[in-house]
Write a protein that binds this DNA or RNA. Structure first.
Lengths: 324, 324
DNA sequence: GTGAAAGCGCTAACAA
DNA sequence: TTGTTAGCGCTTTCAC
């Protein structure tokens, strides 16, 4: 196996200088058609591929974006990541992916890896690590769905409205004894409190009492199921549950069916995956595509140094999807 | 905003040579405790982070692995990618992710991007591009679930057994009029034909007639739903359907419920996501974790030049998960 | 329209 | 135990 050809090899093969080859490849300066052709032929002949690493080193830009999320295996993140990745690809950026699995130390390691890899920017969709760690990095950063007041640009959806709409949908169905299950706690500190506020305001507007249960996100499905089972069994006259993510809602739904109770459920996220598997689930849909688009746009602007100073929160509207 | 400190800056601050700093940071050679401390202090003080790009250029190894899959938004791939990423992280590799969205041209572009980025190896989970494109690259490659006879190492699960087990489960339930829906066609040419063979052999062993429908993977959910609806409506005495992925199976299940027909369904993949959302679905479970582990192990071995010549197929067993 | 030379930030021979 | 020097593969002044 022979070594990869380099610029110099192409230059020799084409009988020109390395500079000329570089110019042809990057379309810079004036080149005669004859030379251009000779160079292209040589590139073809040697099956030459430019070494992006060497290029990056010189121009100190890698076209690499690090994205940090809990895990691609959760539909919400999987779908978000797919969108982000597609948009970045169109703009010629490559994506370094980091699944933190909600472990702060892993996230910490990743951040260092990303910095060492000279990424041009970072998208954070996690909460384990303090935002300071990212600010220190002096890197363009956009956070998704994170509570970071003014220090970093944040894109999120309107969780207050989401909580409110979910609760109002249950009320509209004539349910009054409604509890809120706040799953995925560590994962989304902000969304949790906002959703809860929406739920509470909606309930109070009708003079109804509130009750929120918290279920740790780190728990596995078995454990969540057990907790939900106990909770539901202890509420003999429960009529509705609002759960802050669709997976937990799906678990609740199956428990309710098995217990043969009449309890309405509203979930949260509205991913394509879950709504396809469970079209009967009523849920609050986060605008994943729009969030991804905005995030990427903002990040690329920050990278190109527009809007550098302005850190603000962008809040996108959610919608209700009624179960079939 | 001051420029990032480099090795030289640290050297100056510590009053030593760049070489010494490099040695301290990489734990090479013998260094006096005093110097070591001085260097570490300087690193701390300047908040220095080594430039991995420069290092990569020198050692011509990037610790970057490219992984090419249709999309993180599909649970099977999302879960597979999360596993792969975790295992690679443990071995100090970073992951460049590529969602091809089943578009051959995008995959082609990605491959070139990966080559230019000097990745140390590639994992392919797609079928759009011919395997030749990858072989040409002269790069360590492992393919997942792909039909590539002898030219590249392949990891997959036993789709023949999967098809057989699925069909036999339906037969065990007393169903005899069973059709096979081969979804996700382009996505997995190999698995399709193997599953079908398993289905056919199981049916023929009982002297029953076979019928396989193909549904293009590129279709959206609406279209798939329509096709399935028509298909089911046209079979007045259908008793069972084996579908080659869980998402399509979920769609079928909801149609059947709405039509109030008595048709048993068996799906394929058995992802955590779908089995959580739809615990009542009977499905064939692919050993995602084991596949990821084997794939990563094989790739790292190829990268370190062990087993370089041996390209073979590794087939892992599937299991049946009965619906609740 | 083209080339020679310097250097991006790092590491590894080779000296001392 | 430490420093000097050269060079990884590329791009870009500056000169012709």
């Amino acid at each position: 196996m022979k070594a990869k050809p380099k610029l110099e090899d192409v230059a020799k093969a084409a009988g020109v200088s390395p500079t000329t080859v570089s110019r042809v490849l990057n379309n810079r300066g004036a080149i005669s058609d004859k030379t251009r052709k000779r160079v292209h032929d040589a590139v073809q002949r040697l099956n030459y591929h430019p070494n992006e690493i060497a290029r990056s080193l010189f121009v100190s830009k890698t076209h690499l974006i690090g994205i940090i999320f809990p895990s691609t295996s959760q539909p919400f993140f999987g779908e978000m990541i797919a969108q982000i990745e597609n948009l970045l690809f169109e703009k010629n950026y490559k994506v370094l992916i980091c699944n933190t699995m909600d472990q702060a130390d892993k996230e910490k390691n990743y951040l260092n890896m990303l910095l060492a890899s000279q990424v041009d920017g970072v998208i954070i969709g996690t909460h384990s690590l303090g935002i300071d760690a990212y600010l220190q990095a002096q890197l363009p950063v956009i956070a998704i769905d994170r509570d970071a007041t003014g220090t970093v640009t944040v894109v999120r959806s309107d969780h207050y409205q989401g909580g409110r709409m979910a609760t109002e949908e249950l009320l509209r169905q004539g349910r009054t004894r409604i509890v809120h299950v706040n799953g995925m706690h560590t994962r989304r500190s902000l969304s949790c409190s906002q959703q809860q506020k929406g739920y509470e305001d909606a309930m109070e507007a009708h003079g109804l009492p509130c009750k929120t249960y918290n279920i740790e996100s780190s728990l596995d499905i078995r454990a969540k199921k057990q907790l939900l089972k106990t909770m539901i069994a202890s509420h003999l006259n429960l009529e509705g549950i609002f759960l802050s993510d669709d997976i937990t809602a799906a678990i609740a739904l199956s428990i309710i069916r098995k217990m043969d109770r009449d309890i309405a459920v509203v979930g949260y996220d509205g991913t394509t995956t879950v709504t396809t598997c469970l079209p009967e689930l009523t849920t609050i849909v986060q605008p994943i595509r729009a969030m991804a688009k905005l995030t990427v746009d903002l990040l690329l602007k920050e990278i190109s140094n527009e809007f550098s100073g302005i850190k603000r929160n962008y809040v996108l509207p959610v919608t209700l999807k009624k179960g079939e």
